[in-house]
């Protein structure tokens, strides 16, 4: 049981007493109390557990905590720079009333955020490709798509 030194939402963490093969998801939820990241399948199928490691989206249910050693992890709780200030993606989600039950939406937002970072103006096909690993049982996909386009527009506007 070695110590995992990592940064989570901008804060240094020395994670102890955890088997390094433990999935990052359960360390976030059970050890650190960051329960915004959700369990949905445990086998990297549904995307509910999506977080960023050094800005790239990963499925935390199937990523050992050891993979966070020396890296920077961002969860839904740390997405906005300031508490209460929503990112363009989160804001678009609210305005489009995307969530129904909302359980999968943290993962959806983390994937959408990563997509827009890599591709500021995604096509519908780009959205299909980037988002098809994030399941929503309520079927909010049309609104997720609209919100991503909306957030992309807002982000481009900010830069301009």
């Amino acid at each position: 049981m070695s110590t995992i030194n990592t940064t989570i939402n901008g804060k240094s963490e020395a994670i102890q007493d955890v088997d390094p093969s433990t999935p990052l998801l359960w360390v976030l939820r059970d050890h650190l109390g960051l329960v915004g990241t959700k369990y949905g399948c445990g086998i990297a199928q549904c995307g509910a557990c999506t977080v960023h490691i050094d800005g790239s989206p990963v499925r935390s249910c199937s990523t050992p905590v050891s993979a966070a050693q020396g890296k920077s992890v961002t969860t839904i709780e740390g997405l906005a720079v300031n508490v209460g200030a929503l990112t363009a993606v989160q804001q678009a989600w609210v305005e489009h009333d995307v969530p129904q039950c909302g359980y999968c939406q943290a993962g959806q937002i983390m994937s959408a955020t990563a997509l827009l970072k890599a591709n500021p103006n995604p096509s519908d096909a780009d959205i299909d490709a980037a988002m098809s690993g994030n399941f929503c049982r309520c079927g909010t996909y049309p609104r997720i798509r609209a919100a991503i386009h909306s957030a992309a527009k807002a982000q481009r506007g900010e830069k301009a």
Binding site: L86, G102, A106, I109
Partner: peptide, 19 residues
């Protein structure tokens, strides 16, 4: 009116059974 839980959901603060 927008969904009453919308902001808490998108910030990961909404509390589900598992949380």
């Amino acid at each position: 009116p927008l969904a009453i839980d919308g902001e808490e959901i998108v910030e990961g603060r909404a509390v589900y059974g598992a949380d």
